[in-house]
């Protein structure tokens, strides 16, 4: 739906009613600051767009504020965070959640997402670190998702992580854990098909098993991105074009879950806006083929 006006776009403007964001074939990009000038001057030719939550929190003016203001009036926005730290034993960061609620109230995103991971310890900010998939961890994450959704007064999405190891203590598979969290906490799933591929290769899982065991009704958004092979590990680098292997998982996901709004991520070695849009067009083409 990149050419012309998307049919569903304007239903969502200025609302947090997410019903129109379900089952549509929106294609978009995770916007990079390198493209802010272009977007402000010329607009953005995608159905929707994703912004990194932490880059928008507390921003009151300047280029980023102007870009967000322009975009939110023109198309649906998704917010994607990295510091919610939903699996951490650290207390939830109330200041962060208060700021996030203010941002949500201002820009009315269609989806608000973060990762199934822990990203802080003793107050230190860390990368997205893996959870053991135990009953204790499940109860911990579910209770925190419920609390976050109450504070934000809306449903959130959790993204499957890129994982590089597997805990012997895990009693559930990653997909079982994610499915259980989404059902028990009543949250949605942001399915990163690159992460499915990367984690499956790194841990000896079958990507088809992964997709087959996720609850169809919980998949709200898909991410596609690139990865690199580094000394025996696949690393989720978000660099370079989406590999054919990941497009293959994307096709399989669309066959299983139907039309799902999709975002192309490219965070390192950020290319021209045109190159990112080419990836977006590729996702749109595949979505049309799979819908036919």
């Amino acid at each position: 739906m990149l050419a012309g006006e998307p049919r569903d776009r304007f239903i969502l403007l200025g609302t947090t009613d997410v019903s129109a964001a379900k089952g549509v074939a929106w294609q978009g990009i995770a916007l990079k600051s390198q493209h802010h000038h272009r977007v402000l001057a010329e607009g953005l030719r995608t159905d929707w767009v994703e912004l990194i939550t932490e880059h928008c929190l507390g921003v009151r003016g300047g280029m980023r504020f102007a870009v967000v203001e322009k975009l939110r009036q023109e198309r649906p926005i998704a917010l994607h965070g990295t510091t919610l730290s939903i699996g951490s034993i650290d207390p939830l960061d109330r200041d962060y959640l208060t700021s996030l609620k203010e941002l949500i109230d201002r820009i009315s995103p269609v989806w608000v997402s973060d990762h199934l991971a822990w990203a802080s310890f003793g107050g230190r900010q860390l990368d997205l670190l893996p959870l053991p998939y135990t009953e204790e961890a499940l109860a911990h994450v579910v209770s925190r998702v419920v609390e976050v959704q109450e504070i934000l007064q809306r449903q959130i999405l959790l993204e499957n992580p890129s994982s590089y190891l597997d805990f012997a203590d895990s009693s559930l598979s990653e997909w079982e854990f994610l499915a259980q969290v989404s059902e028990q906490a009543d949250c949605g799933i942001l399915l990163d098909v690159n992460n499915v591929f990367v984690s499956s290769r790194n841990n000896g899982w079958d990507p088809c098993d992964y997709l087959d065991r996720l609850p169809r009704s919980r998949i709200r958004e898909i991410h596609v991105a690139g990865h690199q092979d580094a000394a025996g590990l696949l690393i989720d680098t978000h660099e370079g074009p989406v590999p054919e292997s990941v497009w293959g998982v994307y096709r399989a996901a669309l066959r299983r879950f139907g039309s799902v709004p999709t975002i192309v991520e490219w965070d390192k070695g950020v290319p021209s806006l045109e190159t990112m849009l080419v990836e977006c067009e590729r996702a749109a083409l595949i979505a049309r083929q799979e819908a036919a």
Binding site: D127, L128, L129, P130, Y164, L165, D166, F167, A168, D169, S170, R201, N202, N203, G204, A230, A231, G232, L233, I235
Partner: peptide, 20 residues
């Protein structure tokens, strides 16, 4: 108590997270 998987060693896997 990490599960051994074919491919990279568990030490290499932890090293990835340290760098990350």
């Amino acid at each position: 108590r990490l599960r051994e998987t074919s491919g990279a060693t568990v030490g290499r896997r932890i090293e990835h997270y340290r760098r990350a």
